[in-house]
């Protein structure tokens, strides 16, 4: 019976092992960011988890984007770089198909805060 109890514990140990990551401090508001994503229509080109209607196939999916090593294949993924990319993609990579949507600095921070919840 001791064996059974140990097997029962195994999933608990797994969960305990995964939950210890610390989220980075982000200036934006993820709830406002999610609304901004809908307002700017990001979902017409990207799959974005938990954003209704965001199922575009023009650009890459943004699933687990917080874990992505590079943004757009060119930028090391940090919150600052993500804000820069969202606001002026053509300045980061002149060849990109992603348009400049005239995103305000505040909105870009909120959107980044939301995207960083996608792990």
């Amino acid at each position: 019976m001791k064996g059974k109890a140990l097997i029962g514990m195994a999933p608990l140990l797994l969960i305990a092992g995964c939950g210890s990551e610390k989220a980075p401090e982000l200036p934006g508001d993820p709830v406002k960011g999610k609304m901004a994503i809908t307002a700017y229509g990001c979902g017409s080109c990207h799959i974005i988890p938990d954003v209704p209607g965001a199922n575009g196939h023009t650009g890459p999916t943004l699933e687990r984007i917080a874990k992505r090593t590079y943004l757009a294949g060119v930028l090391p993924n940090t919150p600052e770089e993500m804000v820069r990319w969202i606001r002026a993609p053509e300045q980061v990579d002149p060849r990109t198909a992603m348009p400049n949507m005239a995103v305000s600095a505040g909105d870009a921070h909120d959107i980044t805060a939301y995207l960083y919840t996608l792990k």
């Binding site: 196939h57 650009g59 999916t61 992505r68």
Partner: peptide
Amino acid sequence: DVGPPLAGMGARR
């Protein structure tokens, strides 16, 4: 997730 996931790549524009 170093680069993008390639699921749905056949449908990507």
